[in-house]
Design a protein around this nucleic acid. Structure first.
Lengths: 181, 181
DNA sequence: CTTATGTGATTAGGGGGCTAATCATAAGGC
DNA sequence: GCCTTATGATTAGCCCCCTAATCACATAAG
């Protein structure tokens, strides 16, 4: 779901104007920031539109992909805690996602033999068929979105985004509290 | 609030591997896509962290900024419909946002004199003082996030993001249905 | 004037995030 | 063995987003 954002980005001249009122405002930094958030949202929307048409949310898609990745490896299952950790959501949220996926017969909860506190979550055959149906179109949408960029531009973009992401990780590291809770 | 996303991006080799299974998967396009969404989320988090500490959400901040922009111009107020339109959310959502802002004494609802269906929403002095307090730190955080990029790199990044955003607007234009509902 | 239609705001109900609290089971110290 | 502590999953309750339905008022047609 897109973040709430100004639909019309402030124009550069407006930023220069506002900078007079707020000395700490750096117009070029703000411009990058606003464009980054908006483009991220637009890109998200392109794929989310497809998911919604198929009755999927981004959260449910992520869970299915994590389990699909597991299924391609050796282990066929995963605990809710591991899924929450890898998806970057709380365990409470993962409980809710698994609830709706189970209701839609996409996953199965199975008790763990070794530790009776734990569950193991598995994809159903229905989920595998569903993913095989939607993934090609998903990738096509991503390709289509990126067609305006040459291979060279893609490398540049990834490099510049990486600089920002690395800086963000320094400035406000993802808290480890969730993992300990 | 960040989109639910894989915390650990698939590495490039994994994308190449997965491409064998899905012919429609273009590794470089996917790489840009995943980095864009993740970096957008990280950037969002840097500012949202600050907002949350001040008891603000992104949605409420956007509404305050829209009204603040109005207040800097001539008109001191705005209808909920206009706010919803400019923020890119539904009117129902805007009703909820205004509810919580009014509860926190940040905005006032006033009946319109000319049309008794309409309201006008105004910032309170408390909101103005609040914005004056938090905005400098908000801009500082954005500057800090962008320090790794030179002015040249910023221009490049904005240009490349613009290409994607333009493509997204072509591929899946923002529906006008919300405005008509 | 009366009625149909359009438009502003709201409400009702659902999804999906979150935190904090709860409950069952494990594991370790005495 | 028993009690404390830690950890897995869940529940309860909040916020913010959505769509669809509702209500009040304006406006135009007959």
């Amino acid at each position: 779901m897109p973040h709430l954002l100004l639909k019309d980005l402030p124009r550069y001249e407006c930023l220069l104007e506002a900078a007079k009122q707020f000395p700490s405002l750096d117009p070029s930094a703000c411009e990058v920031f606003l464009n980054l958030l908006r483009t991220g949202d637009e890109a998200f929307r392109v794929t989310d539109e497809h998911f919604q048409a198929k009755g999927l949310s981004q959260g449910r898609f992520t869970v299915l992909m994590l389990l699909f990745d597991k299924a391609c490896g050796q282990s066929h299952s995963c605990t809710p805690a591991e899924l929450a950790d890898r998806a970057g959501v709380t365990r409470a949220t993962m409980t809710g996602l698994i609830d709706t996926l189970e209701r839609d017969a996409m996953v199965l909860r199975k008790p763990s033999a070794s530790d009776r506190r734990m569950l193991s979550v598995e994809l159903t055959p229905r989920a595998l068929a569903f993913l095989a149906e939607i993934l090609p179109e998903h990738f096509r949408r991503i390709n289509n979105l990126m067609t305006p960029l040459s291979e060279n531009e893609r490398r540049t973009l990834v490099r510049l985004l990486g600089k920002i992401a690395a800086r963000a990780a320094e400035v406000s590291p993802v808290s480890e509290t969730a993992a300990h809770a």
